[in-house]
Simulated scan of single mutants.
Amino acid sequence: MSSLTQFIRNVSSEMRKVSWPRRKELTGYTITVVATVTILALFFAGVDLIISKTIRFVLGL
């Protein structure tokens, strides 16, 4: 049990050393991630649609 207590103390100590982003930075990072995921989702949906249409055309379905 003492090793668990020591572990929790060490984690707590390390968490105080972490440099947390400010609200403005965090907002910017969040917008970047959401925009990137949206763009990639649209890109892959388009590629999937093109490949599906091509395969259906080639197979005559």
Rank of each mutant, 00 (worst) to 15 (best):
3 S>F: 07
49 L>N: 08
38 T>E: 02
5 T>Q: 13
12 S>N: 13
57 F>T: 14
53 K>F: 12
42 L>F: 04
38 T>G: 13
24 K>D: 15
7 F>V: 05
39 I>Y: 08
24 K>C: 03
26 L>K: 11
29 Y>E: 12
61 L>M: 07
61 L>S: 05
42 L>A: 09
38 T>Y: 11
47 V>D: 01
52 S>C: 00
1 M>S: 11
38 T>A: 15
26 L>R: 09
27 T>G: 08
8 I>K: 14
20 W>Q: 14
22 R>I: 07
14 E>N: 09
43 F>R: 08
13 S>E: 10
46 G>K: 08
31 I>H: 01
58 V>N: 02
59 L>P: 03
37 V>M: 12
40 L>C: 13
32 T>V: 03
2 S>C: 07
3 S>Q: 07
61 L>V: 12
49 L>R: 09
40 L>N: 04
51 I>V: 14
37 V>C: 07
37 V>G: 00
41 A>E: 02
21 P>G: 03
15 M>R: 05
53 K>I: 12
57 F>C: 07
4 L>T: 11
4 L>W: 01
54 T>D: 00
25 E>H: 01
19 S>P: 03
9 R>Y: 06
18 V>Q: 12
9 R>C: 03
15 M>D: 10
1 M>Y: 06
15 M>E: 12
47 V>E: 03
28 G>E: 14
39 I>L: 15
38 T>D: 08
48 D>M: 04
22 R>A: 11
26 L>Y: 01
6 Q>G: 07
58 V>C: 04
49 L>W: 12
26 L>S: 09
9 R>W: 00
49 L>C: 06
